[in-house]
Lab assay of single mutants.
Amino acid sequence: EKTLKIVADSEEEAEALAKELAEKYNLEVTIERNPEEEGKYVITIKIKP
């Protein structure tokens, strides 16, 4: 299993990107607040072998 993390500037941007990735590529995608940067969100994508 591989994990890729993407940082987005807004929750709306994160949700839109996560939804597109999940639907288009059938990936497991989660969104959470970035504890290191206020106002940023981390999109985590898990790629199963």
Results as ranks from 00 to 15, higher is better:
Glu36Ala: 09
Arg33Met: 08
Tyr41Gly: 01
Glu38Ser: 11
Asn26Tyr: 05
Tyr25Pro: 02
Ile31Trp: 15
Ile43Asp: 00
Tyr41Ala: 01
Tyr41Glu: 00
Asp9His: 11
Asn26Thr: 04
Ile31Lys: 01
Glu32Trp: 12
Lys19Leu: 07
Ile45Leu: 13
Ile45Lys: 00
Ile31Arg: 01
Lys5His: 11
Ile31Gly: 00
Lys46Trp: 13
Ile45His: 01
Ala8Cys: 15
Glu32Lys: 05
Glu13Gly: 03
Leu4Val: 08
Asn26Met: 06
Lys46Ile: 12
Ala16Glu: 06
Ala22Pro: 00
Glu23Ala: 14
Ile43Val: 11
Val7His: 15
Thr3Met: 07
Ile31Ala: 01
Glu1Thr: 13
Glu32Ala: 09
Glu37Ser: 09
Glu36Pro: 04
Tyr41His: 02
Ala18Ser: 04
Ile47Thr: 06
Glu15Ala: 14
Pro35Leu: 11
Ser10Lys: 02
Val42Gly: 01
Gly39Ile: 02
Glu11Gln: 12
Thr3Phe: 12
Asn26Cys: 10
Val42Lys: 02
Leu27Gln: 05
Lys19Ser: 07
Ala16Gly: 05
Glu1Tyr: 04
Glu37Lys: 09
Gly39Met: 04
Ala16Ser: 07
Lys2Pro: 06
Ala8Glu: 01
Val7Ile: 12
Leu4Gly: 03
Ile43Gly: 00
Ile6His: 03
Thr3Asp: 05
Glu20Trp: 15
Ala14Lys: 01
Asn34Cys: 14
Leu21Ser: 00
Leu17Pro: 00
Thr44Trp: 12
Lys2Ala: 14
Glu12Val: 08
Lys46Met: 10
Lys46Arg: 10
Leu21Ala: 02
Leu21Asp: 00
Ile47Trp: 15
Lys48Arg: 13
Glu13Ala: 10
Tyr41Asn: 01
Ala22Asp: 02
Leu4Asn: 03
Ile47Ser: 06
Lys5Asp: 02
Ala18Asn: 01
Gly39His: 06
Asp9Ser: 10
Thr44Gly: 01
Glu23Gly: 06
Gly39Val: 02
Lys19Trp: 08
Glu15Gln: 13
Ile47Arg: 05
Lys24Gln: 05
Gly39Ser: 06
Gly39Thr: 05
Glu15Cys: 13
Arg33Asp: 04
Glu28Tyr: 08
Glu13Met: 09
Lys40His: 06
Glu12Cys: 09
Tyr25Met: 02
Ile45Gly: 04
Leu21Trp: 08
Glu38Leu: 11
Lys5Ile: 13
Asp9Cys: 10
Ile31Val: 11
Thr44Met: 08
Ala14Ser: 02
Gly39Asn: 06
Ser10Gln: 01
Ile45Glu: 01
Pro35Thr: 09
Glu11Thr: 05
Gly39Lys: 04
Ala8Thr: 09
Glu11Tyr: 15
Leu27Cys: 09
Leu27Phe: 09
Glu12Leu: 06
Asn34Ile: 11
Lys46Ser: 08
Ile43Met: 03
Arg33Cys: 05
Tyr25Lys: 01
Tyr25Glu: 02
Ala16Arg: 11
Thr44Gln: 04
Glu37Ala: 11
Ile31Asp: 00
Lys24Arg: 10
Tyr25Asp: 02
Val29Pro: 05
Glu38Thr: 13
Ala8Phe: 13
Val29Met: 03
Ile47Tyr: 14
Val7Phe: 15
Glu37Cys: 13
Lys48Pro: 13
Glu36Gln: 10
Gly39Ala: 03
Lys24Thr: 06
Tyr25Ala: 02
Ile43Thr: 00
Pro49Ile: 12
Ala8Arg: 08
Leu21Thr: 01
Ile43Pro: 00
Ile45Ala: 08
Lys40Trp: 05
Thr44Tyr: 15
Ile6Asn: 01
Glu32Leu: 10
Ile31Phe: 10
Ala18Cys: 05
Ile45Val: 11
Ile45Pro: 01
Leu4Glu: 03
Leu4Cys: 14
Lys40Gln: 09
Asn26Ser: 10
Lys46Asn: 07
Lys48Ser: 10
Ala14Trp: 02
Lys5Cys: 11
Glu28Val: 13
Asp9Lys: 06
Tyr25Phe: 05
Pro49Val: 13
Leu4Ile: 11
Ile45Tyr: 04
Ala18Glu: 02
Asn26Val: 03
Ile43Ser: 00
Val29Leu: 04
Lys19Val: 05
Asp9Ile: 04
Ala14Thr: 01
Gly39Asp: 04
Lys24Leu: 11
Lys40Ile: 06
Ala22Gly: 07
Lys46Gln: 08
Leu17Thr: 03
Pro49Thr: 11
Asp9Tyr: 14
Glu32Pro: 00
Asn26Asp: 05
Ser10Val: 01
Glu37Leu: 12
Lys24Trp: 05
Glu12Lys: 08
Glu13Leu: 10
Glu37Phe: 13
Glu37Met: 12
Lys24His: 05
Ala14Tyr: 01
Thr30Ala: 06
Ala8His: 01
Arg33Tyr: 07
Glu28Ser: 10
Ala22Leu: 08
Lys48Glu: 05
Glu12Arg: 07
Val29Asp: 00
Val29Asn: 01
Ala22Met: 13
Leu4Met: 10
Lys2Gly: 11
Val42Met: 07
Thr44Lys: 06
Ile31Leu: 04
Leu27Tyr: 13
Ala22Trp: 14
Glu32Ser: 11
Pro35Val: 08
Pro49Leu: 14
Ser10Glu: 01
Glu37Arg: 08
Pro49Arg: 12
Ala22Ser: 10
Val42Pro: 01
Glu1Ser: 14
Leu17Gln: 03
Lys48Cys: 10
Glu1Met: 14
Leu17Asp: 00
Thr30Arg: 06
Leu17Ala: 03
Ile31Glu: 00
Asn34Leu: 14
Glu28Arg: 06
Glu11Met: 13
Lys2Val: 15
Lys2Trp: 08
Glu13Phe: 06
Lys24Phe: 07
Thr44Val: 13
Ala16Leu: 10
Glu13Thr: 06
Pro49Met: 10
Ser10Asn: 07
Thr44Phe: 14
Glu11Leu: 14
Ala14Gly: 02
Glu12Ile: 06
Asn26His: 08
Ile6Gln: 02
Leu4Ala: 03
Ala22Phe: 11
Glu28Ala: 08
Glu1Arg: 12
Val7Lys: 13
Lys46Leu: 13
Pro35Phe: 11
Glu23Ser: 14
Glu15Phe: 15
Ala8Met: 14
Glu36Thr: 14
Ala18Pro: 00
Leu27Met: 11
Val7Glu: 11
Asp9Glu: 10
Leu27Glu: 03
Glu36Gly: 14
Glu11His: 10
Ile6Lys: 02
Ile6Met: 06
Tyr41Gln: 01
Glu15Thr: 13
Glu12Ser: 07
Glu12Phe: 07
Ser10Ile: 01
Glu38Lys: 12
Ala8Val: 15
Ala18Lys: 06
Leu4Gln: 04
Ala14Met: 03
Val7Arg: 15
Ile6Cys: 05
Glu36His: 10
Asp9Phe: 12
Glu38Arg: 08
Ile31Asn: 00
Val7Gln: 12
Leu17Asn: 01
Tyr41Met: 03
Arg33Glu: 10
Val7Cys: 15
Glu12Gly: 06
Ile6Tyr: 15
Leu4Trp: 15
Lys24Asp: 03
Glu37Asp: 10
Lys5Phe: 15
Ala22Arg: 15
Val29Lys: 00
Ile43Tyr: 02
Tyr41Thr: 02
Glu37Asn: 09
Val7Ser: 11
Leu27Pro: 00
Ser10Trp: 01
Gly39Tyr: 05
Thr30Pro: 01
